[in-house]
C-alpha cells in the first residue's frame, strides 16, 4: 500500500507542469524514503531527477517499494483538476494498476477522487555520480528564466562562462549576438552596501543588489560550456518552485540545474553540453 498526502497540493501541480513537456512517460519510484523520479527526454540529452522526501508529506505510508509508470501529460490533466490550495493524496495498491489522486479543499467540504491507469514503462536508469563541480552558481530563478528567454530570441545555444566574479551568458544568431553578464554579489558586498545606504539615509534602495541578481559563485576552476537554449527554457518552467536556481558546471559534463522544493526535496535537470568537433 502506498499513500502520500501533501497539504500544499500546488507543489505537486507545479512539479508536474515543470516536467511534463520534457518527459512523456516516467516511472515514479515510491519507497520509504519518498516519491522519486528519474527520466530522460526522448532525445536522451536531458534528464529530470525529482525527489519528494517522505518527511515532507503530511502523511506518508509505503509498505513495499512500488514503481508507478505514468503518462505525465495525463497525470498533469488530473492534477489540473485540483485547486491550488487543495490537499492532494496519492494512493496505490502494491499490485494494482491504477493510482488514485484525491483532492480535498481547505474547508473539507469538497472531496474529489480521480483514478488514472498506470502503465508499464521500460526505462533506462542512469547512475549519476556525486561529483564535485568546478563551478556552482546560485542566482534568482526569475533572472535565470529571463536570461534564457531573452537569449533564445537571438540564438539557439547559450555559452555560459563562469569566473570567480561573474557568470556570462552569450548567444549569437542570424540577426546578431548578445552577452549578459551577472556579477557576483557576495553576502559581504550586500551587507556593506546596506550599511552605506542606511548612512546615506536612502530607503530600500540597497535591495537593488540583494534582490536583483543575487548571484553567488563557488568556483574551483573557471568553466565555459555551451548548451541548447530550448532545453534550458524548458527547465525554467520550474521557476515558481523556488526563488533561487543552482547551476553546477564542470568541463565536458552535463550542467545540473536545481530548484529546491521547500521542506520536501528538489527537482534537478541535467543537460549534455554542446561539444565542438
Amino acid at each position: 500500500m502506498f499513500e502520500a498526502r501533501i497539504l500544499q497540493g500546488s507543489i505537486l501541480k507545479k512539479v508536474l507542469e515543470s516536467i511534463k513537456d520534457l518527459v512523456t512517460d516516467a516511472n515514479f519510484e515510491c519507497t520509504a524514503n519518498g516519491f522519486a523520479l528519474q527520466a530522460m527526454d526522448s532525445s536522451h540529452v536531458s534528464l529530470v531527477a525529482l525527489m519528494l522526501r517522505s518527511t515532507g508529506f503530511d502523511h506518508y505510508r509505503c509498505d513495499r517499494d512500488v514503481t508507478m509508470g505514468m503518462n505525465l501529460l495525463n497525470m498533469s490533466k488530473m492534477l489540473k483538476c485540483a485547486d491550488n490550495d487543495d490537499t492532494i493524496t496519492m494512493k496505490a495498491d502494491d499490485a494494482g494498476d491504477v493510482v488514485t489522486f484525491m483532492f480535498e479543499n481547505p474547508k473539507a467540504d469538497k472531496i474529489s477522487d480521480f483514478q488514472m491507469k498506470l502503465m508499464d514503462i521500460d526505462t533506462e536508469h542512469l547512475g549519476i555520480p556525486d561529483t564535485e563541480y568546478e563551478a556552482t552558481v546560485k542566482m534568482s530563478s526569475n533572472e535565470f528564466q529571463r536570461i534564457c528567454r531573452d537569449l533564445s530570441s537571438i540564438g539557439d545555444t547559450v555559452t555560459i562562462a563562469v569566473t570567480k566574479d561573474s557568470v556570462k551568458f552569450t548567444t549569437s544568431g542570424d540577426i546578431g549576438e548578445a552577452n549578459i553578464t551577472c556579477r557576483r554579489t557576495s553576502d559581504g558586498d550586500m551587507k556593506e552596501e546596506k550599511v552605506k545606504t542606511e548612512e546615506d539615509g536612502e530607503k530600500v534602495h540597497n535591495t537593488k543588489s540583494s534582490e536583483g541578481q543575487n548571484v553567488d559563485i563557488d568556483l574551483q576552476e573557471p568553466v565555459t560550456l555551451t548548451f541548447a537554449l530550448r532545453y534550458l527554457n524548458s527547465f525554467c518552467k520550474a521557476t515558481s518552485l523556488c526563488e533561487n536556481v543552482r547551476l553546477q558546471l564542470s568541463k565536458e559534463l552535463p550542467v545540473v540545474v536545481q530548484y529546491l522544493i521547500e521542506d520536501m526535496g528538489y527537482v534537478r535537470f541535467y543537460l549534455a553540453p554542446k561539444i565542438e568537433e
Binding site: 530522460m40 532525445s43 536522451h44 540529452v45 536531458s46 534528464l47 533506462e124 536508469h125 542512469l126 547512475g127 549519476i128 555520480p129 545555444t157 555551451t226 541548447a228 559534463l253 552535463p254 541535467y270 549534455a272 553540453p273 554542446k274 561539444i275 565542438e276 568537433e277
Partner: peptide, 14 residues
C-alpha cells in the same frame, strides 16, 4: 560544428 552527446556517454547505467 557542435555535437551533443546523449547522457549515456556521461553517466553509466545504474
Amino acid at each position: 560544428v557542435a555535437s551533443q552527446n546523449r547522457l549515456e556517454s556521461f553517466f553509466g547505467a545504474a
